[in-house]
Amino acid sequence: MAMKRFLLLLVSVATILSAQAWSGIGNPATRAFAKQFMTPEARKENARIWKLNKKYPAEKSDKPTDLRWNKVTLDADLRSTTTYEGDVVVQMERAAEVLRNRKNYSEKEQIEAMRTVTYNMILLHTFGNISIEGNELTNGFFVLLSSGAAADVNASKMRKYKWQTLWNRAILLRHYGFTADMYAEELAISHGNNKDAFSAGTIRDWAADMGAELSKQLEGAKPNMVVDRLKMLEYETVNDRIMAKAGYRLAALLNDVLK
């Protein structure tokens, strides 16, 4: 009985972890990057709303309390057309409206809206959370992670890894000892000139763009394909680009709704 309870606890922890957008550094790094592009006005309002949260007066606990479903659903043409209230995009649109008209809402509602906008922007940019109609691979599949080059390592010695988890966690954990602001600096160096190109559009445009990014990575992908170290380096470049997109877009959205 005790073991069953422990198992239940572990499964609960696992569920919480899997609902995280990126690994430990991904979320704070994206926020740190976004802050560089926020207007002083938006930065001030952003700080004020976070401070309303007495329990967590900073962005430490950014996950919305009513997060029920962490998926971005796109149709076969990569358009976000859903009105399902649990969808990441729909939740973001509603939260953005709360922040835009924040004087009409309670402190608690403002905090929740801020958490939703911030957290869901990251969910929107995480491959593991995007589901494309008709594309079975977006429901999840396993790959074989090679410790060397694909041709040099015996398949039986490769580690089985969920492709989505590779993006949510493994890629970001490669830079051991990096802090969020260090990673934000990397994004600024590598994508410092892409602000306008990356932040243009609406939340649904960004969802469509992420669908295109995901589709490109899934071209030629199949279950049990080998991901070697060189492939991981390629993935890392893509991951940095989508983190930069998330950061620029978060800043653009907050600059707009916190005017």
Binding site: M182, E185, E186, R229, L230, M232
Partner: peptide, 23 residues
């Protein structure tokens, strides 16, 4: 550094370990 690497030195500090296995 920024021009050629597009990143910091720290970012590529382990790169040689990553590619050592490639032909």
């Amino acid at each position: 550094r920024n021009h050629y690497l597009n990143h910091t030195l720290a970012y590529y500090a382990s790169w040689q370990d990553e590619v050592a296995w490639s032909k």
